[in-house]
Structures are given as structure tokens and as C-alpha cells.
Amino acid sequence: MFRKIENPKDLVTIVVDGRELEVDATASVAAALLGAGMATVRRSVVTDQPRGPYCLMGICFECLVTIDGVQNRQACMVPVRDGMTISSQRGARTTQGGGR
């Protein structure tokens, strides 16, 4: 849904649903996913509909993903880090694991 118009100065590697991606080191997780062509990051809790980032400013809670094992994090509010592992979510979170 987006393309980059600059070549980022620094890149980091993140793993998204098992796939390695080289992304701009200054990006938020949401921006990195959008830049990589991922418009959908989860399926909704109540009716299992596809959802993706909507506001990119921490308001809408549509971009909830699991980051380094912590569920329901706002992808738009978390900067990427080298080696970060991100997974998309489906339905409600589990209560297993995921301590920050």
C-alpha cells in the first residue's frame, strides 16, 4: 500500500511471521509492515475480520501485533529493533507467556 521514496541510511532485520525483512531502522513496526506491503496485521477479536493499521498515532488499536512474544502491542508506537520478532494475531490474546 506504500512505497519508500528514500533509501534508508540504516537498515535493521526483523522477522515477521517467520519471514526476514530488511527495514528502515527509524521506522515504527507499523510503518515497516506497511512499507513491506502488509496492509493486514490481524483478524478482529469479535467477528474475525481482517484489520490493519488505521491511525498510526496510537489511537485506534487496529495495528495490534505480538512483538518479541508480548501480545497486543501497538505496532505504530514501537520502533523497530534489529532482530525483533513480530507475529500477526488472530482473535483474543492468550494468557500464556508474554510478560514484558
Binding site: 477479536v45 497486543n72 482473535g91 483474543a92 490474546r93 492468550t94 494468557t95
Partner: peptide, 13 residues
């Protein structure tokens, strides 16, 4: 007066 906390939705536990 009583007070409660409510969390996000979780898979049944």
C-alpha cells in the same frame, strides 16, 4: 463503594 478492574479480551482460561 466498590471498585473493579476490567482487562482486554483473552482466550478462555
Amino acid at each position: 463503594k466498590g471498585q473493579i478492574l476490567v482487562t482486554e479480551k483473552c482466550a478462555p482460561f
